[in-house]
Design a binder for these strands. Structure first.
Length: 599
RNA sequence: GCCCACGUAGCUCAGUCGGUAGAGCACUUUCUUGGUAAGAAAGAGGUCCCCGGUUCAAGUCCGGGCGUGGGCUCCA
C-alpha cells in the first residue's frame, strides 16, 4: 500500500503522499503556510496560530484572531508574503526540549495543547524564517525564495481540532504551485468547475429547484431534470432485472417497532425526523430501506436453494442533515437511493460481490467515468467476531480480484457492523465522487434473525450485502450535470432534437419530422416562435440540445434536415430517414459521442 | 448547529451621503419571413426575504428570524 497519511502535530500534511514529487510539493505548500503566518503576524501581532498543514492543491492555517478577516485583508497579506519570498529568508530548524518549547509558546494555548500531548522526553523542532518562529515538525524548503506561485483563496471558520465544542478559529485557505503557469492552470480548473456547477446549470437549463416554502434540502425535479433521472432509472432497473435482481417497493413510513429492532432508534435517531402518531403508535419516515427489504426476505421460510435473493428498490429516504451541510442536489434531506440488498449463503458471497463490482464497472463505463476502488477494513468500534470479519474482508478482497479491479486500502474505514468496498468515480475534471458501495452487514441479520434452511435441514444465518450503484438519484444526476457540463449524451438529453424552421413556410414540414421522431421515441422541440433562425439556434444552443435541425426551402424540397451539432459543427443536409435511423442507433447504444460514420 | 459573506422583477444584477425603485434578458402585443449563437418597437411585471427597532423619513442603519453561498463537523 502506497498511501501514507501524515498527521503530525503542528505541521500536518493532510494529504496523500505517494512519491518524492508529492512530498516536495507538500513541503513547499507547508512552507507557504508558514510564509502566510509570518505575514499575518506582521499585520496582527496578537494572532495565535493553531495548525497549518499542506492539503490537496495547497494549504491552510488556522488562527485565533479578533479581527474578522475580509477578502481585502487577503490581498494585503499576499503582498507581504511576496516581499518575504523575495527576501529569501532561510528556514532555520532548531531542536528543543519539550519544556523549552512549552516556555517559548507559553502564550499560545493551541501550541501548548499540542506540546502537552507529546511524550515528556520527546525532541521538539521549531522552524524560523525572518523573525517568525513556529512549532513545527517540518520539513521545509531551504528558504522562502524556494516557494513558487501562490494565491490566498478564502477565509472560513473551522473548529479547533474539528470539534464543535471547541473554539471556532479563522482559517485561511491558499493554493501554491511550483510555477506561475501551474498556478494559472489550477485557477483555470477552478473556474471550469464553477462554470459546470450543477446549481448554476440546473437553473439555466431548468432541471430542478429548491423552494423556501417546500423546505431546504428538498429537490423539486422539473420536467427536463426528471427526464434525465427517468432515463437513468429505466436503464438501471432493466439492467438489474437482467442480472437477477427482483424489484420491490416498501412504504415511506414505518412504525417505531421496526426501528427498535433494527437499532436505528438507538444509533441513528439524530438523523431521523420526529415521528407522527397513528392510532397511538409512533411512525417514522424511513431513513433507510434495509428494514423493509429484510421483512420481505423474512416473509417466508427461505431454502438454501432459492438464495441468493437480490431485492432492489429506488427507495426514497429522508434524513435530517444539519442546515449548514446542505448543498444543491449533492447534499439533501430527502433522496432516492438505488438501493439493493442481497441475501446469500457464505459460499456465494464472493460471486455476489464480484457480480456487484462488475455491474458497478459497467455503470461507470456507460456514463463515462473513470473509477478508483477502496477496501475499507475494521474500524476501532466494531461488532461481531474476528473470524467473521476476516472472512468478510477476505471475501471482499477476492470479489475485487475476481472482478479484476485494482484497489486501495482504507484502513479502519469500514462501518461498525461490517467492512465495505467504496468505488469513487473520477469525473471529466478529475474530481472524485461517491460511487458504488458494497457493504457487508453482520448487525441486522443478527438483530432480525435473517436465516435460511440449509441442505442439512438446519437454520443458518444469511450473509447480507447492502449495495448501491449510483448512490442517490439526486447526487448522481447532480454529479452528471457537472461531469458532462450539462451537455448530455443523446440518450440522456432531455430534448434530443431541435427543429428550426427558417421561415414559417417550413413549419408544417418541421412538425411532420417532429411527429415521426416522437413516434420513434425521440424527444423533440419545434422552435416555432416568431424569431429569426439565428435566435432559435442560440436558444437551442443554450439548452445544449445535441442536434439542431435547420430546415429551409432547400431541405423541404430534398426531404432532408441540415444538421448542426451543439459543438457548432455543421454536418450539412442529411435525408430525414437516414438521420433518424442514425440518432436512434446512438440512443440505443448509449453512445457518449454525437457523430460517427452513421450520421 | 457553528464562523464569515450575501438576500432588490421569472433570471443576472445596478441602486452614491437614509429622501418610498432601475437595466439587460425572459414574458405579452405589434411590425419583421430572416440560411447556422440574440431583428425592431411598445407594454406589463416589485411585500426591495420576514418580524421588530432607530428616524420626520429605511431597499439603505441596528436587533432577531428564515434562506442561500464558502468552510468546520457529518454524509448517499
Amino acid at each position: 500500500m502506497l498511501v501514507e497519511e501524515q498527521r503530525e502535530p503542528g505541521s500536518d500534511m493532510v494529504v496523500e503522499i505517494e512519491n518524492e514529487q508529492d512530498l516536495a510539493l507538500a513541503t513547499m505548500r507547508h512552507s507557504t503556510a508558514h510564509l502566510m503566518a509570518e505575514a499575518v503576524r506582521e499585520i496582527y501581532p496578537d494572532v495565535k496560530f493553531a495548525i497549518g498543514p499542506a492539503i490537496d492543491n495547497g494549504f491552510y492555517y488556522d488562527m485565533d484572531l479578533d479581527h474578522a478577516l475580509t477578502p481585502e485583508d487577503l490581498a494585503e497579506i499576499e503582498l507581504l508574503m511576496g516581499r518575504h519570498r523575495e527576501a529569501a529568508e532561510p528556514f532555520v530548524r532548531t531542536e528543543v526540549s519539550r519544556e523549552e518549547a512549552l516556555k517559548i509558546f507559553a502564550d499560545n494555548p493551541y501550541k501548548v495543547e499540542i506540546l502537552r500531548e507529546l511524550p515528556a522526553g520527546s525532541v521538539i523542532t521549531t522552524y524560523q524564517q525572518g523573525d517568525f518562529l513556529d512549532l513545527c515538525k517540518g520539513p521545509h524548503v531551504a528558504d522562502t525564495g524556494q516557494i513558487g506561485a501562490f494565491k490566498l483563496q478564502s477565509v472560513a471558520g473551522a473548529y479547533w481540532r474539528g470539534d464543535e465544542r471547541r473554539p471556532m478559529l479563522q482559517r485561511i485557505y491558499g493554493t501554491a504551485w511550483p510555477t506561475q503557469d501551474e498556478l494559472d492552470q489550477y485557477l483555470h480548473r477552478l473556474e471550469e468547475a464553477q462554470r459546470r456547477d450543477h446549481r448554476k446549470l440546473g437553473k439555466e437549463l431548468d432541471l430542478f429547484s429548491v423552494n423556501d416554502e417546500i423546505g431546504p434540502g428538498l429537490i423539486l425535479w422539473h420536467p427536463r431534470g426528471a427526464m434525465i433521472r427517468y432515463q437513468v432509472e429505466q436503464f438501471e432497473q432493466k439492467e438489474q432485472l437482467a442480472r437477477g435482481y427482483d424489484l420491490v417497493y416498501t412504504p415511506h413510513i414505518a412504525s417505531e417497532k421496526i426501528y427498535q429492532t433494527s437499532g436505528h432508534l438507538e444509533t441513528y435517531k439524530e438523523n431521523m425526523y420526529s415521528p407522527m402518531s397513528i392510532d397511538e403508535v409512533d411512525y417514522y419516515v424511513k431513513p433507510m430501506n434495509c428494514p423493509g427489504h429484510i421483512m420481505i426476505y423474512k416473509s417466508q421460510v427461505r431454502s438454501y436453494r432459492e438464495l441468493p435473493v437480490r431485492l432492489a428498490e429506488l427507495g426514497t429516504v429522508y434524513r435530517y442533515e444539519r442546515s449548514g451541510t446542505l448543498h444543491g442536489m449533492l447534499r439533501v434531506r430527502g433522496f432516492t437511493q438505488d438501493d439493493a440488498h442481497i441475501f446469500c449463503r457464505e459460499d456465494q458471497m464472493i460471486d455476489e460481490i464480484a457480480g456487484v463490482i462488475d455491474l458497478a464497472i459497467y455503470m461507470a463505463d456507460v456514463f463515462g467515468y473513470q473509477f478508483q476502488a477502496y477496501l475499507a477494513t475494521r474500524p476501532e468500534k466494531w461488532i461481531g467476531d474476528d473470524a467473521t470479519w476476516d472472512r468478510a474482508i477476505e471475501g471482499l478482497r477476492r470479489g475485487l480480484e475476481q472482478a479484476g479491479v485494482d484497489y486501495k486500502l482504507d484502513e479502519g474505514g469500514g462501518a461498525f457492523y461490517g467492512p465495505k468496498i467504496d468505488i469513487k468515480w473520477v469525473d471529466a475534471l478529475g474530481r472524485e465522487w461517491t460511487g458504488p458501495t458494497v457493504q457487508l452487514d453482520f448487525n441486522l441479520p443478527q438483530r432480525f434473525d435473517v436465516n435460511y434452511i440449509g441442505e442439512d435441514g438446519e437454520k443458518h444465518r444469511a450473509v447480507m450485502i447492502h449495495r448501491t450503484l449510483l448512490g442517490s438519484m439526486e447526487r448522481f444526476v447532480g454529479g452528471l450535470v457537472e461531469h458532462y457540463a450539462a451537455a448530455f449524451p443523446v440518450w440522456l438529453a432531455p430534448i434530443q432534437l431541435a427543429l428550426i424552421p427558417i421561415t414559417d413556410d417550413q413549419l408544417p414540414f418541421c412538425q411532420q419530422v417532429a411527429a415521426d421522431a416522437e413516434a420513434a421515441g425521440l424527444r423533440v422541440k419545434v422552435f416555432d416562435q416568431k424569431e429569426r433562425m439565428q435566435a432559435k439556434i442560440r436558444d437551442a444552443q443554450m439548452l445544449k440540445i445535441p442536434y439542431m435541425l435547420v430546415v429551409g426551402k432547400r431541405e423541404v424540397e430534398a426531404g432532408a434536415v441540415a444538421v448542426r451539432l451543439r459543438s457548432g459543427q455543421d454536418l450539412g443536409a442529411i435525408p430525414v430517414d437516414q438521420f433518424l435511423t442514425g440518432v436512434i442507433a446512438r440512443v440505443e447504444s448509449r453512445s457518449l459521442e454525437l457523430t460517427d460514420e452513421v450520421l
